[in-house]
Structure formats: C-alpha cells, structure tokens
Design a protein around this nucleic acid. Structure first.
Length: 675
DNA sequence: ATAGGCTCTGTTTTT
DNA sequence: CAGAGCCTAT
C-alpha cells in the first residue's frame, strides 16, 4: 500500500485525492503525469472501487501495460485492470460483444492500414486523373477518408481543409469511400477508424450507452491533447453517468493532428464541463534547467499555444550541445563515438537514446553502430506485424477465421504462380458464394485460365492442410503453415529468408499466449509492438541496449542522454508536414517533445551536406536558427571542415540523478487569453 | 488480356 | 525497401 503523502508532491497529491468529478490535469513535460495517474488508480482501488469499474484510456498499448504494472506494484496485489488500454482496444473488446447489433459477426476482421489500402485500391480502379494530372493514390485516398471520419467532417470539407488540389475530385472520392465501406461490410471487416466510429454509434444508442456509462464509475484519459473529435465524444458518453472524468495532457505536446487530433479538446474542456476542476502539475522532475531553457525558448515561437515556462531550481552546469558535421556519415560517426564515450563513462545503455524525425533518418547511424558493436533497440517505421512475411502468415489465419476477408484472400492468392490481380479478383468473387470452408474447394475451375488453374490447384493443397488443422490453436496453425509450403515461397522470394523464418518462429511463440485465433488476430492488428531491427541475436536483454526511435515513438519516455539527429533544413521540420495546416507549429511541438525527453545531456547534430551521395548542401534546421543566443554550446564554427571528432571539451560525466527539481509555482500555465 | 520480371524512384508521423 | 511503371512472354 503506497504512502501517498510521502511519495507525491502536494500538486500531485491534490489530483490523486481530489480528482472526482470532471477534472483537467495540465501536466508539463516531465511533471510526473504517469505517476499521478497510477497513484490515482491505486487510490481508487484502495477506496474499494472494483477494477471492473475503472476505465483507463492510454495512447499506446505499451503505456497501458506499464501503468497496469505500476498500479499492481503499488497496490501489492494481483488486481488486474481489465479496462486499461487504447481507444481501439477498448472499442474492439466492446464491439466484439455487440457485433450483431451493427451487422457484423463476432469474428469480424480488423484491417490494418495496409489492408485498407489494398481494398481502396480495388475501389479506385478505373479512376483516372484528368488533364495529365494524377489521380490520388490509394494511400492518399485512405488518408483523406480516414481523416474525415476521425474529425467527423464531411469528405468535401476535408478536401477543402487540407487537400485543395483534389477539390474537384470530390464526387469521385465520395464514390470510392462509399464503395470502400460496402466492401468492408461485405468482408465482415472493420478498419481502425470503424472501431472508433462504430463504438460511438453503439454509445449513441441509449440502451447500450447506459450499460457502459453505468459501469465505468471512473474514467481516466492519458495524452488527452492527442485525442480527436470522435474519441472525445466516446469519452463524454462513457463518463455521462458518473461524471468522474479525469483527463491529463499538455497542449505543447500535441503531435498527432495528422490523425485528426484536436487541441481544442483540452482547451475547451472547461467550457464543456462547467464544474471542471483544473489541476496544474508544475514541478519538473526530469530535465536540467539548461535543457528546459532550450525547450521553453523553442516553444515560445509558437503562437497557438498556452504560454508556459518550465523551470527547475537546479542546473547541471551543462548546456545542450550543437554539433554540425560534414555529411551523414560524419554525423553518424560522431554520434557513435559519443555514445561509446558515454558507455565508457558508465552510463547504462538504456539511458541513451537517439531520436529522429523520420524512420529512415537512422540508416547511416545503424550501420555505424553495428560496425562499432553497439547494440540497439529500434522504434518506429515498419512494425513487426506489418512486415510482409508476417502479414502473409496472418492472412492464412485470417481467411480461416473469416471466409469473407477479401484483403487477406488477395494477399494469399497472389502468392500462387499464375494468379495475378485479375485471377485473384475472380476467385474472390466466387468465394463470396461459399458458405463453408469445404465449399471453397469446389469453386474456381470454370472461370480461370490455364495458368491460374494450376495456381489455384496448388493453393487447394495448402487449403486441405489448413482444414485438417482447423481446430488447432493459433500457434500450432502457424507452425503447420510454416511446415507445409510457406518456407519454399520464402526462400524463392527473399534473400534474407532465414532471418524471416526466425521472425515467423517468433510469431508462433507470441501466438502461444492465445488459445483463440480471433483474439490473437485482433491483438496482432492492434499491437504497436516494435520491429526487430538491430541486433536480433541477443534479444530480450533490453537493458543492454541503447534506443533508436522516431520522436513520435519517444513520447512519454525519458533518457539520461539524448541525441537529436538530422536537424537540417528539409530534414526537420519535415517538408511534407509543412504543407499541412499549422504544420510548422506542430513540427515545433515535435521538436519540443524531443528536447524534453532528455534528463541531463542533450546533443543536437545535423549534416551540412545530405542527399545520399552528399551532393546537396542543406543548412541547419529553421528551428536551430530560432534558438536564442547562449542556450547552446554551438560547435558550428569549430568544426567547419572536419569530419572527425575532437571535442574533449564537450565530455560530460554521468551523474546518477534522482533528485527532484523544483520550479517556481504559478509560472507554468496561464490563461487562454495568452494566445 | 494477363502475369511476372525488371528497373527506378522516393521515403512523415501511427492506432 | 517496396511500390509504381514499363516491357515481354504467354
């Protein structure tokens, strides 16, 4: 049982003890947000609240897992929190129960973005751009459609808002969106957006809403600044009976507007809930004053932001460093040697992170790290469950689970020699009339050409094998597929077949946790688990590895030493993002998030020449030029023409820190008028 | 008409 | 690294 008084500061304790009714917690970077939420939940449990009646919504599954673990540790018992998870997870859990109400069966498939795109591609077939202009690709169409749904905005309005050059295609895009909806329905499938939309639909019905609104006595939402309109509505419904809604967030860390997150949710919370209590967490426990000074300076360039100043009373005496290098190779070498230095100083590997704007920015560094024998964990980019071979295997399970799963059929059929897009389409059409797995065998022959027939026959052998093992658990099924045919395909298709086979073995191991294929597939679709790049051979010793991560994936985390790379113009802020509405401000918030991950050391770098072969000169990031004088140790001039490091002056020694750092109260958030 | 191989290009962020 | 586009073989 935790000692709430000694383990929390007064601000935190206030939230934990008095967080009843509608509450808005404005929590600056590093102010102990997670701590407050976990202690609040522990407090509720201690008051005798049944875990079944607590809803805890987080941004990632990982965050949910961590919080649950911390609550368990605090309360010292095995009380699980059955309703802790992401919006999508919770939506799935409830939707599965009520699927028939919405015209789905319980075994409905969850489509990931890949699947969605392949269905949209089918819907968009035949549409051509006019006047030499390209028709938007499936992925752009998907973005448009998805945004419209998450923002609860009509399609045409979305075009107007952020896709002006497609405005005249409004009619066509609407038609494609409708066709896509139909296809999903037919396939007994929901995409990520459907999980939210249908969940809200369910809650709009008074009877179903009452069930859950009554059930959830306490609703807590983390990262509230990154919720979108539909998520906010869901939460409002779920908290409508007991009105114990505690949302936690920081408008300066809103970095998901591309997914239709709207800061207004946090800014207008008090308008919506007139009797809301507002709490401010104003003590920074994470970073040194030097790092916070930089962060404050950066964010002060945003106009659409609450004004705020993060402060501590202690300084580490070490300013953040800026080190330009000639090109990406030199930059990577520099980082590698710097990291080696930190490791030699005794900094634990897991206290070191390298952050970047886009997943591919890390390539050069990965090569250097491998060469130096420094192992790392990688976060960002293609995730494990999105990799081609993993999706292949999952597709077999998916069609077994849901015969109507078009996207999965497409994937499997195209693997067979002789079957291409056209043949696959015909087969999928025919499968629609099959009601049982057995009936699948009897279709196809009269509609296919010679070569396609052969491919189909080949597939039927696999199908037979699958049917024989239909009742088995997912892990066994996976091993059956691996053992029968897939390995041959893998070898013929990929250079790194062996490595991929090992991945698949991992998948089987992961699947062992599930007795039920349906559950396993849902989990696979909703997991944001990291991919297995880097040093795979020494898996499971996460403690021994440094972290490479996109900034988005670094949200909510902290490290003793942080490197922020590729801060060049064009690299960060990202060119594409700048074309979004308010893109610059969001990029700046992203920069702010990156800076505030660091506890003691922060090193910024950029290559002066980039573009692969080093042909292009690119200056420093706009964000670097905005920084006021005196906040950085700027090594720009010192190293203008060197590619090798020579910065003994920059060496920092590891100070194990656990001293909380206090800030002046009242200096953090002011009123909305400050806009 | 369809499938498949080969080459080139361009890469934001994620449930 | 994978997707689009082009070309060739069936």
């Amino acid at each position: 049982m935790p000692d709430f008084f000694s383990e929390l500061n007064p601000e935190q304790l206030d939230v934990v003890v008095n967080g009843n009714g509608p509450c808005l917690v404005l929590a600056g970077a590093g102010s102990g947000k997670t701590r407050v939420i976990t202690y609040r939940v522990a407090y509720l449990l201690e008051q005798g609240i049944n875990p079944e009646n607590i809803l805890l919504v987080t941004f990632t599954n990982k965050a949910a897992g961590e919080m649950v673990a911390r609550v368990q540790k605090l309360t010292g018992n095995e009380k699980k929190l059955p309703w802790a998870g992401t919006f999508h997870h919770i939506a799935y859990k409830i939707l599965r129960f009520h699927a028939p109400l919405l015209g789905f069966t319980q075994n409905f498939t969850i489509l990931d973005s890949d699947d969605s795109e392949s269905l949209i591609k089918m819907c968009a077939k035949g549409y051509k751009g006019e006047g030499g202009r390209k028709f938007p690709s499936a992925s752009v169409l998907h973005n448009i459609i998805s945004y419209a749904r998450n923002a609860e905005m009509p399609l045409r309005e979305v075009l107007d808002y952020k896709y002006e050059n497609f405005i005249e295609l409004g009619g066509e895009i609407e038609a494609i969106a409708d066709e896509y909806s139909r296809k999903k329905k037919e396939a007994n499938a929901m995409d990520f957006d459907d999980l939210l939309v249908n969940f809200l639909l369910l809650l709009n019905h008074p009877d179903t809403c009452a069930i859950y609104a009554k059930k959830f006595q306490y609703v807590l939402v983390d990262e509230y600044q990154d919720t979108n309109k539909i998520q906010a509505s869901i939460i409002d419904r779920l908290a409508s009976t007991h009105k114990n809604l505690l949302v936690v967030g920081d408008d300066a860390q809103s970095i998901y507007s591309f997914r239709a997150a709207q800061i207004e949710n946090i800014l207008k919370f008090e308008e919506k809930y007139r009797d809301a209590k507002v709490f401010r967490l104003e003590t920074n426990y994470r970073s040194s004053q030097e790092i916070l000074d930089l962060a404050n300076n950066v964010i002060s360039n945003n106009t659409k932001q609450y004004k705020k100043v993060l402060k501590t009373l202690e300084s580490s005496g070490v300013r953040p460093e800026l080190h330009p290098r000639m090109d990406q190779i030199a930059e990577a070498q520099f980082i590698t040697e710097k990291i080696q230095g930190l490791l030699d100083d005794g900094v634990p590997p897991k206290e070191i992170a390298v952050l970047f704007r886009a997943a591919h920015h890390s390539q050069m560094l990965e090569m250097q790290l491998m060469r130096a024998g420094i192992s790392y964990d990688y976060r960002g980019g293609l995730r494990f469950f999105e990799r081609a071979h993993i999706k292949d295997i999952l597709s077999y399970l998916r069609v077994m689970n849901n015969l109507a799963d078009t996207a999965a059929w497409l994937r499997i059929l195209m693997h067979e020699e002789g079957i291409g897009p056209a043949g696959a389409q015909k087969i999928i059409e025919a499968i629609k009339s099959a009601e049982t797995h057995e009936q699948v065998k009897s279709i196809g022959f009269n509609i296919l050409g010679e070569r396609a027939k052969e491919g189909w026959n080949n597939f039927l052998k696999v199908w037979d094998e699958l049917l024989k093992n239909k009742k088995k658990e997912p892990a066994e099924m996976i091993r059956v597929i691996l053992g029968s045919v897939y390995s041959e395909y893998l070898e013929s298709e990929y250079m790194d077949a062996e490595e991929r086979m090992r991945d698949l073995e991992q998948l089987a191991v992961f699947a062992e946790k599930y007795g039920d294929t349906e559950q396993f597939l849902a989990e696979a679709a909703l997991q944001e688990s990291f991919n297995l790049r880097g040093d795979i051979s020494k898996k499971n010793n996460t403690q021994e590895k440094i972290i490479l991560s996109t900034i988005h994936q670094a949200k909510g985390l902290e490290w003793h030493s942080v490197f922020l790379i590729n801060l060049s113009s064009g690299g960060f802020p990202n060119d594409r993002a700048m074309r979004e509405r308010d893109g610059l401000e969001e990029e700046r918030r992203l920069f702010y998030v990156a800076i505030t991950r660091a506890k003691r050391n922060l090193t910024l770098t950029y290559p002066m020449a980039s573009g692969g072969a080093g042909d292009f000169l690119s200056g420093p990031s706009l964000f670097l030029s905005e920084i006021s004088e005196g906040l950085l140790n700027d090594h720009s001039l010192l190293n203008y023409n060197t590619t090798v490091l020579d910065d003994e002056d920059a060496d920092v020694h590891y100070i194990p820190e656990d001293r909380p750092i206090k800030i002046k109260p009242g200096s953090f958030l002011r009123d909305v008028d400050d806009f």
